[in-house]
Design a binder for these strands. Structure first.
Lengths: 351, 351
DNA sequence: GTGAAAGCGCTAACAA
DNA sequence: TTGTTAGCGCTTTCAC
């Protein structure tokens, strides 16, 4: 039980291999320009001693951390009703792992936490940041720019901070919404309603815009604001049925909203899809496959979004690292403003 | 745009405040034993320069990282069907934040990843680890013990690694299961079935034991193995109805399993709760409140579990830090083996 | 191709 | 109370 109270250092490995610390360092970091024989010897010493580099010491000199912060700034609700973030995290995690980078998770609980996050990012603990779920009035983008950390956003940011270009990955929310509504139209529906998401998020706004693209002259009473939650979906659906009992189609801003709507429709005796066709957005499997009837929806590849965000960030970091080492204005000439991922229609029974 | 290309160091602050680095260090770390006037001056210099301590340099000497790893080792399914982990993470995050510790998230995708996690933990990058969802045959506990990192487990570990005591936080799965089954009994049900969880997890085993505690002489055909998934719930429910058409109560190992069971019951024309009373476990709100009918279930406070795990770990770390600084065998005399959180019955419409 | 030596920014004895 | 000093373990010129 006399556990390795002191972990082996470069020094120890060097001694054992009969070389200098510099050589061990070279081998540990790829081993270029070291004679094959020595590489062997060092590798063996590393194994025998169970040497693992001390990341703190390394960071101190390289100023790299091999760590990326993931900031999820969701005041409350959505995160936990929806496997959304779990999926993104999984995608991100896979990509970071493949790149030997660590994932530092920063969950914020409200405005107060933003300052803490800003401080952390400014503190130079991580090489970059992946930031989610900004709301239009969010202070975070400003803090983040101020922190000067390379950042990729999940979802198009709300630009509350001016016109600065930001790197982001988003789904084709507007195009997907158009597909959804056109599908309802193709089904012969004419009184098509839309339950929006939380309109302080660009995804909700974009989906609404997509709806309007197709239903340019829609009865305004057919649009009701929701908030991406099941309860919001229920409330909105009731309101819609009261206002427009003749509606025959509903495009809900996401699947859990649609699930809420379905319950109200059943409760009110409307058959789906016979009386009212319903379509969601996300294709969140545990939701969409479990509703009654199963939900027709617009699929977006959440995990891939996460992956791509990570990939984009890591590429920037690598480039920056290869370049003039900070001589440049950060990311000057970076023209990758946003990447938009396609969406597809998934037909099930509800529309 | 001439951003602070070099962040201010202790040295810079010291110069500006006209004191030594040591004094600045003292102030930054609490400021005990420094004259008030100097504290003031240093604080001001810190603010003016926007000084943030370099964590790498600090770790290098203190050997502390103010970071904790959270390991979620869930091969596939469950993580993303269930807001379970999101809630735990939130609880953990809150507690760590309050303690100025960072959360490093390690998601594993299968056996291969275990080695990576083991290496990371052994690498001394974090002060401790919080580990979830071990399966009975999991290699992780062994790797973790070998890594020698203080660890708290989420859920009672499966002891595949012998009889070593481990610190863990768990829900009262067995007691909760008893409560559930007794509730069905109290409703006058006599043919009560159980759909188990994945029996390679102790939570599923404990819930099954609880079921048996009450239904000691149950017809063995009334117990069917599930896997904590909706699909598993559906399959199990079909099997149960085929085997025992006369059943009048079902205790499902978790809410999403119960949701699957409810669908099959409806499909087969059984009324709930009139013909068959159904009770779940977890009280996962987005699931339990949204089923038809809403689910009676056993509530466990997931977020609190996360919080408590973090608190336990941090307490151990603090203690270790205060003590003889590693002179002791790690955690000798730590008698906190497991903490079991109570569960409560939540009545809705299904039972 | 390899080694010697100079720090990276900080904390913690130890002196003063 | 405050300052001086010696590293923490590593990478990285710069000689050899």
């Amino acid at each position: 039980m006399t556990e390795a109270v002191t972990r082996p250092t470069l020094e120890a490995v060097a001694a054992r291999a009969g070389v200098s610390r510099a050589t061990v360092s070279r081998v540990v970091n790829g081993g270029d320009g070291v004679r094959e024989r020595l590489v062997e010897r060092v590798r063996q010493a590393v194994d025998e001693l169970g040497y693992v580099p001390n990341q703190a010491a390394r960071s101190l000199v390289t100023r790299r951390h091999d760590a990326v912060a993931v900031v999820i700034a969701e005041p409350e609700t959505r995160v936990f009703a929806d496997p959304f973030f779990a999926l993104q995290l999984r995608g991100i995690s896979k990509e970071l792992t493949a790149h030997d980078s660590q994932l530092v998770l920063l969950l914020t609980e409200g405005r107060d936490d933003h300052a803490r996050v800003g401080r952390y990012l400014a503190g130079g603990h991580v090489d970059g940041a992946l930031v989610f779920s900004l709301h239009l009035d969010d202070a975070l983008p400003g803090l983040i720019r101020h922190a000067g950390v390379p950042t990729v956003f999940g979802g198009r940011p709300g630009w509350s901070d001016g016109t600065h270009r930001a790197v982001y990955v988003d789904s084709d929310n507007r195009g997907g919404a158009r597909t959804a509504v056109r599908h309802l139209v193709g089904l012969g529906r004419t009184r098509i309603a839309h339950i929006t998401g939380a309109l302080d998020q660009t995804s909700a706004v974009d989906r609404l815009d997509g709806f309007r693209d197709v239903m340019a002259d829609a009865d305004p009473r057919l649009i009701v604001e929701g908030d991406f939650s099941p309860a919001g979906g229920e409330r909105a659906m009731r309101e819609l049925l009261d206002r427009c009992p003749d509606l025959d189609g509903v495009f809900a801003a996401n699947d859990i909203t649609a699930a809420g709507a379905l319950r109200v429709l059943r409760e009110r005796g409307r058959r789906v899809p016979d009386d009212v066709a319903v379509i969601g957005f996300d294709d969140m499997l545990p939701v969409a496959e479990q509703t009654d009837p199963p939900l027709t929806t617009i699929r977006q590849d959440i995990e891939e979004m996460g992956r791509l965000m990570a990939r984009l960030l890591l590429r920037r970091l690598d480039r920056r690292n290869a370049d003039g080492e900070g001589e440049q204005a950060p990311d000057a000439g970076d023209d990758t403003a946003g990447v938009v991922l396609p969406t597809t229609l998934v037909r099930r029974a509800s529309a």
